[in-house]
Structure formats: structure tokens, C-alpha cells
């Protein structure tokens, strides 16, 4: 037989060694150990998935809140300085100045657990034990009259708490409700009868100085 097939076979192997095919497997990394996943796996979902074992009462939460949270959020969750308000405002979302808090706006109680667990107290993140977080969430819910004073939040019941604004959200509908913003040929001439000035930023006068170098701290 011809000797070519042998050469081609040889060439095939030479090419394969010179240019190894990239496998579909990830060529780097390793599987995480269960203890490693547990160390980072702190997220909680609205159905309660991810909530750790534990419980905490409104009463314990109040004591803890005064100690760890009130400096920024106020003793009654009313907020201090520009730090966020946590309580009040239920029913205000249609008003000219809506007041968005855990009680008036947040759709899920579990989100408060997830957020406190990962980010609070501000500057001392991930320093609270699950029982403490349950207690704080219970207290904040009570500040908003969402749960009674004797409420004890737990892994079993937190996801079942009904939030006042639970049904206040809907998915992005811009493609439908703002369909008018898609225009084949935008207006180019005489698009409106007049353009009169109706407001000036200079009248509000809240702009920082920007023509000199900023102060350094």
C-alpha cells in the first residue's frame, strides 16, 4: 500500500502534540470543600432558603438594636443624619414625598436577614450570630407594626411573615409601556411651539465648587 497514510498518521500526532486541543473541561481550579462553601454561603432567599437555624425575640432585638444600630438608625428606626430610616411610611408610596422603609417598601422579611447578616453593623460586617440577626429582624418588623411585641423570629417562621408592600412590585415593562419612545424618524423641525426656561439649577444653589481643587483629608 501507499506510504502516505503512515505519514499522515504521523503528522496527525505531531500536530496534536504541538497544538493540543483545548478540552471543554475547566483546565484550572478545584472543587470547593464543604467547609469552604459553608464559610461563604450566607445568602438567604424570599422562600427562606439559606436561613440558618436559630431564633430571636423582639425584646432581645430591641436591646441589641440600641447597642449596635441606633447610633445610625435612631432608637426607633427613624434614622440619624443621612443614614437610612427603617420604620414608618406605610401607605406613603403614592404621596408626593414617599417614605421608603423596611415596613413601607421592602417586599420580603428575609431580605433584611440577608442584608444584616452580610453588611451590618456598618463597618463591623459579619460580626452578628444568627440568633442576634433573628432578634434584630424581629425588632425592626415590630417597629413597623408588622409583627407583635411577643414575636420570636426563627428559621421556621421568618419567610412566612407577610410584608405590607409584598405585592408592590412588577417586572420591567418599559418595552411595552414606553413603546412611544421607539420612533422611526425623530422630529427635526418645529417640534414644539416654544422652549421657555422653567427652572434653573442656580436657583437651587446646591452645587459644590468645582473650579478649584477639592480639599484633601
Amino acid at each position: 500500500m501507499s506510504k502516505y497514510p503512515k505519514i499522515i498518521k504521523k503528522l496527525f500526532w505531531v500536530l496534536l502534540i504541538a497544538y493540543p486541543a483545548l478540552s471543554a473541561e475547566l483546565p484550572v481550579g478545584r472543587p470547593p470543600l464543604p467547609a469552604e462553601i459553608a464559610a461563604w454561603d450566607i445568602d438567604v432567599r424570599p422562600d427562606g432558603t439559606g436561613l440558618p437555624p436559630g431564633q430571636g425575640s423582639v425584646k432581645l432585638g430591641e436591646a441589641l438594636f440600641l447597642e449596635r444600630c441606633a447610633a445610625c438608625h435612631g432608637e426607633f428606626g427613624e434614622g440619624a443624619g443621612k443614614f437610612p430610616e427603617l420604620a414608618g411610611g406605610i401607605g406613603s408610596l403614592r404621596q408626593d414625598r414617599p417614605f421608603k422603609t423596611v415596613g413601607s417598601y421592602w417586599p420580603n422579611s428575609t431580605t433584611a436577614f440577608d442584608y444584616i447578616r452580610r453588611a451590618m453593623p456598618f463597618g463591623q460586617a459579619q460580626s452578628l450570630e444568627p440568633d442576634q440577626i433573628y432578634a434584630l429582624v424581629a425588632f425592626i418588623l415590630n417597629l413597623n407594626d408588622v409583627v407583635a411585641e411577643d414575636f420570636v423570629a426563627s428559621q421556621a417562621n421568618l419567610a412566612k411573615v407577610k410584608m405590607p408592600n409584598e405585592s408592590g412590585f412588577y417586572d420591567d415593562d418599559r418595552d411595552a409601556t414606553e413603546r412611544g419612545f421607539w420612533v422611526a424618524a425623530p422630529c427635526m423641525t418645529a417640534c414644539k411651539p416654544e422652549a421657555k426656561i422653567t427652572g434653573r439649577a442656580s436657583a437651587v444653589d446646591v452645587t459644590p465648587e468645582s473650579k478649584t481643587a477639592p480639599k484633601m483629608e
Partner: peptide, 20 residues
Amino acid sequence: WETREETSKYTDLMPDGRAR
């Protein structure tokens, strides 16, 4: 997950009191 950043923030309150 409906995290704080995608519910209490980065949702768009509309005139009818509901939010996108």
C-alpha cells in the same frame, strides 16, 4: 434572591405607588 440592592434599592417607584 431579591436582595436589598434589587428590592429596597434599584427599583423604580411609579406614580401609582407600585415599583418596577
